[in-house]
Nucleic acid binder design. Structure first.
Lengths: 227, 227
DNA sequence: AAAGTAATATGAGATATCTCCTATTTTGAG
DNA sequence: CTCAAAATAGGAGATATCTCATATTACTTT
């Protein structure tokens, strides 16, 4: 992790996030791919706001299974749960690309933040979307088999008609075993919805995948991305 | 649905929820058991705050499956998603006991509410807990079989060592088929963890159920209720 | 370049969960 | 009180998903 200093730091400071002035003590942190921004179980000292990059939220269960709760992107907050709640089990946050965040040491600012309308309004919207998103994922995971959820995930993450996410990550995210994920991917290939090329999967029958994914729709709304 | 008037109404008004004064236009609504406070797919005109009673949040999927997303209790907000987001698929909210809510018609107040520190702070905390809770339920549902999740649910809802939730509701909540729920309940009876008495299930081996439920622990924190 | 670790692949068998069907009991409305 | 609808109950077979075992290939690190 690198802490930006001087001009490099100044480049990234933003002032629309808070009514109060906190820029003086705001740090700018850069994390490498795979680096842990927050370690699971260890309360962070900073409230983060992601400026660029991507990260993943993980939790480890007692039986050893690991769940990838969600992806984090630019303009998301990290550490807001610890700011708001004294009692909270801290999830692990891992950068999946180079990630640059604003980092505000919140112990000194906590009271002020909780009285800052601009900050609270933004955070409220962020949390409402996050909460809705989790509820949607939850109900979908219970109501539909992997076939539908995977089709949706492929359409969401494919770029130029090519899907090439890491299987291990996808297992943790969709909550299924590696074995089963492969099985369903193979089914898609057998049906010629996908074609495997090296380690990539090329989308052949977009309409069929869309049909499978379409079944999930009802709820969420933030699903407009096309392949 | 009954709208309280006069003194009956005044009894329920609260003033700690907002900095601004909105009591003048605040209504007090009472809903009967099974009545829909909000109908699925229809945007509500009110922001509600539950004073007493219990309710359930439902969503219907395209395949006809119904998910009980969560339970609502006193001091929860309802309709906050629609206040915050212009685009949102409205979930259905059904009272499961007589429920009394404060109801604020939000179109006229929206801007003021989004500038009200007291309100935003409370709502932020509410949403952070809600979001965490959904994330926990989501990962648990993927990481553990019904056996563990049901044991936990039984311990959470049992009263005086007696479990008597309606099977149909529990199916929607835990996201499993009626058939399978019965199957696992029967297993618990076969193992003498539970004993069926009429339509109730009496907890015989509390420790065994706790052992099954314990495996879920790691994450959430709001789980302190004992049987 | 070697060696260790992470990721990919696949088979075979187990188990968790679902669907469909049918029957009985309870509940609620008129 | 009666009837229809909702809820409970369980059999039988299908399918979605998991576990474990074993190779092979790709990436890091020394």
């Amino acid at each position: 992790m690198e802490i930006y200093k001087g001009d490099k730091r100044l480049n990234y400071l933003q002032d629309h996030l808070f009514s109060i002035s906190v820029t003086e003590f705001m740090e700018v942190h850069e994390y490498q791919r795979d680096e842990w921004i927050i370690k699971e179980g260890l309360r962070p000292d900073f409230l983060y706001y992601v400026i660029e990059g991507k990260a993943k939220i993980y939790v480890t269960h007692q039986n050893g299974k690991v769940s990838l709760i969600n992806f984090i992107n630019a303009n998301d907050y990290i550490g807001e749960m610890e700011l708001l709640n004294d009692v909270y089990y801290t999830k692990g946050i891992q950068a999946s690309t180079k990630t640059i965040c604003l980092a505000l040491p919140f112990h000194r600012y906590r009271t002020q933040l909780l009285n800052d309308v601009t900050f609270l309004r933004e955070l409220t919207k962020f949390l409402s979307v996050k909460s809705t998103h989790m509820a949607t994922k939850y109900t979908q995971s219970l109501a539909f088999p992997l076939e539908n959820r995977l089709a949706d995930f492929i359409l969401q993450t494919a770029d130029q008609g090519i899907y090439k996410e890491k299987h291990v990550t996808v297992c943790d995210y969709l909550g299924v075993s590696y074995r089963h994920l492969l099985h369903v991917l193979n089914q898609f290939c057998d049906k010629h919805y996908l074609q495997k090329v090296g380690r990539e999967y090329h989308i052949i029958k977009l309409d069929k995948l869309q049909e499978l994914a379409e079944v999930l729709r009802t709820a969420d709304v933030v699903n407009t991305r096309q392949v």
